[in-house]
């Protein structure tokens, strides 16, 4: 199943799998899809998340403390896929857990579970040869990050090798909240579009309806991670799905005209 954005802008929701529990993550993901999330990124918790800010660091620690493993995240993907066949589903991870699991085995299992794509934070195109071959073999979309610091020749390689969508990082820095979107984001999206017709999603620091509307002016989708993970941290396992649903409904997503 291909990744499709049914809203303008589309919404990608990042969740750290296993925070506060795998059951809670499943309930939150299903609620988020029903409330309008086009794509769920299931984050594999990692002990040393160097690209993440404090909110996702703490979520990873909580998930690991509950014993969440990569195989559990793949199993969770399978359950979400079975329950919501139309939603986009991406497994989001640092490289080492996948390397340890075995890249070939991971590709097989993630594809069999019904995931659409994979995003590995610390894999850049130069180091991606085997990874790309495996993704291609099993039909999973490799999604690469593009940064405001990426020169055009890197953006060309990123855009050429990405499938599903390209993830544009709104600003230099780690994941987490910010007050205003910088001009970096719009300029980056415009540069990416020179090389691809894939949808472009903008993430890092997107935390409210105003941000999402701003992103909608120049990109195809917004990624919300830390703001939702923060909401989950401040809720109980029982109340977090409802809180996330209310948050997403508050974003006032508009259905996309069914083009393409």
């Amino acid at each position: 199943m291909a990744i499709q954005f049914r809203h303008k802008p589309g919404l990608v929701v990042y969740l750290t799998a296993g925070d506060p529990s795998l059951d809670a993550t499943r309930a939150i993901a299903l609620g988020a899809i029903d409330a309008g999330a086009d794509v769920i990124e299931l984050g594999v918790p990692f002990s040393d998340p160097l690209a993440d800010g404090p909110v996702i660091q703490r979520a990873s620690e909580r998930a690991l403390a509950r014993g969440t493993r990569l195989k559990d995240v793949i199993a969770l993907a399978r359950e979400i896929r079975a329950a919501r066949p139309e939603a986009g589903l991406v497994i989001f991870s640092y490289f080492n857990p996948i390397l340890r699991y075995g890249l070939v085995r991971f590709a097989d299992d993630a594809a069999a579970a019904g995931a659409d794509g994979v995003l590995i934070t610390d894999i850049v195109v130069e180091e991606a040869q085997q990874y790309l071959a495996e993704m291609d073999r099993v039909g999973l979309a490799p999604i690469f990050l593009a940064a405001p610091t990426s020169p055009d020749e890197r953006l060309e390689a990123i855009a050429t090798h990405s499938r599903g969508f390209v993830y544009a990082i709104s600003r230099t820095g780690i994941t987490g909240k910010q007050l205003n979107l910088t001009d970096d984001a719009a300029a980056l999206v415009a540069r990416i579009r020179r090389w691809t017709r894939l949808p472009v999603a903008v993430g890092f620091g997107i935390s409210n309806a105003e941000h999402v509307a701003q992103v909608g002016e120049f990109a195809d989708a917004a990624v919300i991670g830390s703001a939702i993970v923060d909401l989950i941290e401040r809720s109980t396992p029982e109340t977090s799905p409802g809180a996330v649903v209310r948050f997403i409904k508050g974003l006032q997503l508009q259905p996309a005209a069914l083009a393409r």
Binding site: A51, D122, I123, V124, A146, A147, T149, P151, T172
Partner: peptide, 12 residues
Amino acid sequence: GGRYVPETLMAA
């Protein structure tokens, strides 16, 4: 060896 970093650092 190699380079396994977030894309933001690659240009640097």
